[in-house]
């Protein structure tokens, strides 16, 4: 196994690398903010396609970041406030304005189940880049998915990596599933709350319980269940 494989697996929890065929049938417009650079010499562009593999969990507008540093979250460690904001409320603005971002991209709107969005990230060819992608499963208290700190430097032109990613729990909000606590269409409740009333470390998500499984006060139903993985991410270097 190559080091690259190891890095990818570390970052995304559940990973399959390989040249899988493209599945983006509904590519949304691309939003990209190239860094303010002097006249570009040689550039490289990564096209990232995100597919929602769940049955009934729309994904909040994804934040995509290229940075020098590695992981923005880690199993067993406290979530940053920026990650908490997207995990609890689907608000990616704090992540997008995080210090140290080289290039960012954001979706215009949520990504419905079964749909895909494609993003473009461009930077100077000589620059190193670690990719972070984060999005919330909106019909939950604080579930999110994505990958963080995936180094793209080994990608050559036309290289394509495909991987899936599991579901994390930010650990910042108890999974009460109560009315008023879930921002997605299942509830329309409050998103981000600065109070941390859960274990306060990131881990893999235990799944939702739902009223259909005996939690009478849950606003979630059988249609909000999920299992790993939640998303597919395909990265292609196109320039």
């Amino acid at each position: 196994m190559k080091l690259v494989n190891s890095t990818v697996r570390l970052a995304v929890g559940l990973t399959i690398l390989g040249g899988l065929t493209a599945c983006g049938s509904d590519n949304e417009p691309v939003v990209s903010n190239p860094p303010p650079t002097p006249p570009p010499i040689e550039m490289k562009t990564f096209e990232v396609t995100l597919s929602n593999l769940t049955y009934g969990q729309p994904l909040s507008p994804a934040a995509l970041l290229l940075r020098n540093e590695g992981a923005l979250w880690e199993i067993g460690q406290m979530a940053s406030v920026e990650v908490e904001r997207i995990a609890e409320g689907g608000d990616n603005s704090a992540l997008l304005s995080l210090a140290g971002n080289k290039v960012t991209a954001s979706a215009d709107g949520p990504l419905e189940p079964g749909m895909s969005q494609t993003f473009s990230l461009q930077l100077e060819a000589t620059e190193s880049a670690n990719l972070t992608l984060v999005t919330m499963l909106v019909n939950t208290n604080d579930a999110f998915t994505g990958l963080t700190g995936l180094n793209l430097d080994a990608m050559q032109l036309n290289d394509s990596w495909s991987m899936t990613s599991g579901i994390y729990d930010a650990g910042t909000e108890a999974n009460s599933e109560l009315a008023g606590t879930i921002p997605g269409p299942a509830d329309g409740g409050v998103g981000f709350d600065a109070m941390r009333d859960d274990v306060d470390f990131v881990a893999m998500h235990p799944g939702v319980v739902r009223q259909d499984d005996g939690k009478a006060d849950s606003v979630l139903t059988q249609m909000h269940r999920f299992d790993n993985p939640a998303i597919r991410i395909r990265i292609t270097r196109v320039e």
Partner: peptide, 23 residues
């Protein structure tokens, strides 16, 4: 399975805390 009843019900396990998905 668990349940929401810490003093009764079918299970002594908390359904919102002591569950898991693989891995």
């Amino acid at each position: 399975l668990g349940d929401s009843n810490a003093t009764g019900g079918k299970s002594d396990i908390d359904s919102t805390v002591q569950r898991w998905l693989n891995p």
